[in-house]
Write a protein that binds this DNA or RNA. Structure first.
Lengths: 226, 226
DNA sequence: GCCCTGTTGTGACATTTATCACATAAATTA
DNA sequence: TAATTTATGTGATAAATGTCACAACAGGGC
């Protein structure tokens, strides 16, 4: 167990900010901090779920087995809990989490976490808020997914990485073409083609995984009209 | 406000079962019970969200505006809360709810609900469990949606209505063809065609909205292979 | 009864996108 | 370094599905 002190942690979750000194002591004694390198699996579908995972730093993909192959459900950015649903109700993980960048994750004993919910209303409320926000965000993505064509989804995804994750129109996308396809529900080849199309139309510049958005207005337009 | 007594309610939510007598009194004084007929809107996207809606009896569709038209996000069956996410964090509804059958809904003052979370840990925990279960269920549907073809999704939807909602292989589907299309992300015409195909292959029998599953094994096979 | 509106089924066709095949490039291992 | 795997780009093709058009039908209101 990595020595760590939750009280002094600069990256507390909104929920944890409501814990008092005694509760922090309990948290410290029942949690471990673990580093993961890009590509490493944080937890895996079908394995027993013993802990709540809190993503302190880094970027992670949440994915699960689909009918024919792996489906990426969401990309999550620190700080956030990683899959409370997989640990609260179920004995085994219902999905997997894999690091897209170097990350640190704190594993918290599920029983301790549950006790905090039982005994600290503000903690519980913040957990509920996080779950609600995730649900709303997912709903919007799934509405897009169902009604936009593939170029629209590629555009939406690029905009999301630029605006929500990196806050920069120039970034290194931490997903392979194949990952992007699994995220938006299409094929690797289609993603490839659309990126070169966008590149030819001077909407973006692509160098392997390095992406620069040149004509953002047009990209937004493509995303919106589907 | 319809006169009602929550303490004696036979259809309490898992969360509400943890309330004590004083809390039930507060709930009674800050909630109303409303009946909706099939097709009536229970709450509407973009309207102010003032209450938590608890679906006591009936069946409801949750839907939101998509890029091109309405998207049905989920079908929910009583008893359950209806869209806690839309009421907890947001001032206006992020999605709509419409009755698919005659239903009764209890509207609970959001502040009271929030106070129960703050002060009653078991109540909060049950709310969290419900949110988690919904998330997991949605994830599985969206993995299917992304990877199955339309016949597979139609089959999956029919099986879901038979097994999860009506517990009968013979039922009246409360959705129009167009609704089914919005639920699985396809076109009205495709749903129509696939239902007649299934009918021709003696997998199901269709009379308007009356559906009988004849060859369930084959339907499951179609659903699984996509 | 009759009109109007909304739902449904179905054929013809166009479009999108997946699949297959292969070449190339990059990364990893021996 | 060579050899091997893995990721990527791109053309040709086929399959799935959306779109359009129209007919049939049901239900509601007048």
């Amino acid at each position: 167990m990595t020595q760590h002190k939750c009280t002094d942690c600069m990256i507390k979750s909104a929920a944890a900010k409501n814990l008092n000194i005694e509760e922090f002591e309990i948290l410290e004694n029942n949690s471990t901090s673990v580093s993961f390198k890009k590509g490493e699996i944080i937890f895996k579908q079908d394995a027993p779920s013993l802990n709540i995972a809190y993503l302190r730093t880094g970027l992670v993909k949440i994915h699960m087995k689909g009918p024919s192959h792996e489906k990426i459900l969401r990309i999550v950015k620190a700080p956030t809990y990683l899959g409370i649903p997989t640990s609260m109700d179920e004995k085994i993980n219902q999905f997997s989490a894999t690091a897209l960048e170097d990350t640190t994750v704190c594993f918290i004993d599920s029983n301790i976490f549950r006790n905090f919910i039982y005994t600290n209303g503000k903690f519980a409320y913040e957990v509920i808020l996080e779950l609600c926000r995730n649900e709303l965000f997912d709903y919007q993505r799934y509405a897009s997914l169902a009604q936009k064509q593939v170029p629209g989804m590629v555009a939406e995804t690029l905009i999301c990485f630029a605006d929500k994750i990196y806050h920069d129109n120039h970034f290194n996308i931490p997903l392979s073409r194949s990952d992007m396809a699994d995220l938006i529900g299409t094929s690797r080849e289609s993603v490839s083609r659309i990126l070169t199309d966008f590149s030819n139309e001077k909407i973006i510049e692509v160098n392997n995984n390095e992406i620069s958005i040149i004509n953002k207005d047009l990209l937004i337009q493509i995303s919106e009209k589907g």
